[in-house]
Amino acid sequence: MSNTILDVKNLRTTFYTHMGEVQAVRGISFEVNQGDVLGIVGESGSGKSVTAMSIMGLVDEPGRVSGGSILFMGQELTKLSDAEMNEYRGKEISMIFQDPMTSLNPVYTIGNQLIEVIRRHTDLDKDQAHARAIELLQMVGIPEPEIRIKNYPHQFSGGMRQRAMIAMAISCSPKILIADEPTTALDVTIQAQILDLMVRLKNQLHSSIILITHDLGVVSEVCNKVNVMYGGMLMEKASVFELFDSPQHPYTLGLLKSIPRDVTGERKRLVPIEGTPPDLLKPPSGCPFSPRCPYAMGICVREAAPLYTLSDTHSASCWLHHKGAPVVEGFVQVEEESVHE
């Protein structure tokens, strides 16, 4: 597709630890188009943050991208040196993190840090960069930016720090903004402000967002499509409506049943997913979800299912979609399988 900004194919990221190989990401493929807000949902250890770090080229020793490709506007990112990657990082692709206090340097003012990013990636001189920094702080809704630019991070509240991080991230109008749990540390009224701001800036700058979160409420609020990850693999990818209206993977279904869905109406007992997430040092053979899956069959333990294409925007990695599988209510079976390489 012509407006595909990011094309990830069969990405594998492995950490070679003393305890053994940890396959944090095990062959996932997805695309980000211009204007998308892609949610990546998963629990701790699902590989969602490692996916983001792989795209940013920030996977640290002992880990590295061990296979697959990441095409950004036609450019293969996995083959770039660190110096070459610096031309993309922070400029074309930028990232904001969960805890804005640890990602800001406490001994420099907000202005210093913002100007540093601007001057690193543009030809603006000091005064122009200063003016641009004030403009950016204004854009992210920080009142009195001329005064606040001289403040240190500790003089900002949590929500303000995240706004400052966003200002830094959008300073070069990136094509993609990767946000790793950007609102998890924030209160719900501040979370609403920050999500609103991110979506507004995305539209203003014609960019795309990859939003990594564990909160399905946040996903349904701002994303147009969703990847569900578990044990380093992609379980399901779908448009946000398909995912919530007709989940086609037992893990997704389990997640949706285990949270109180509606604020109004009858309170039902929650249906938890039994068991615990897999140990990635010793991942279960076959589908990583099979030990916890209420529908697990013999084949699930032997072999992970391919990604079955269910619609143009919906696919799921589960054997229940195979035409030979027992019919389970709610799960669609397909004639032809499509395996994303």
């Binding site: 719900v188 009224t189 609403a192 402000q193 409420g217 946040v218 349904s220 609020e221 869905r261 509606d262």
Partner: peptide, 19 residues
């Protein structure tokens, strides 16, 4: 009104009272 609800048909941004 700020709680994001896990239902894309009922976006709270439509009715949210932003503080």
């Amino acid at each position: 009104s700020s709680i994001p609800i896990a239902n894309p048909h009922k976006k709270v941004s439509d009715t949210r009272i932003m503080l």
